[in-house]
Amino acid sequence: MTVHALFFYLFAALALLGAVGVVALRQPIQGAVSLLLTLLSVAALFLLRGAEFLAAAQIVIYAGGILAIFLFAIMFVAYREEEKRRRWHPQWPAAVVLGLGLAATLLAFLLRPALGVPAGLGAAQAAAGGNTEALAEVLFRTYLVPFEVISLFLIVAMVGGILMASWGVKR
């Protein structure tokens, strides 16, 4: 077994463990920490596929930013009632069947050997001088307008988040 395969199976197992923890653990704070395990494992998997910039962005944006917002929201919202009441929705048998069916359908399509030989990112990235440089070439030449739109979207989301969080506050 090569080193690449060893690391893939290690981080895939950690990612799946974290994902199961998000769904199964009782408290949302435990779910958030469990999601952190999945996010870091997925960042490591990005590294294995040669996406260095995205691995760093995954750690900074997801593990650093989004998860911090989640922890703040969990801090604001108290959780005394959920310990007493049942946490599973009554529709859980149907949901498990639907979820497994979805995964099985995806797997049935994926397991056909139709993907062919990998071209590899090596040539494209070497021509540009590295992963980040190659990404910047595509992002800021071909996809400049969507990039600006997404920054506009983030400002709107920020204003909307502040507005929503302060909705109903007595002044």
Binding site: A19, V23, R87, H89, A94, A95, V96, G99, A103
Partner: peptide, 10 residues
């Protein structure tokens, strides 16, 4: 699939 189950059961 795990995420979809989580959205439906929790």
């Amino acid at each position: 699939g795990i995420g979809a189950v989580g959205v439906m059961v929790r």
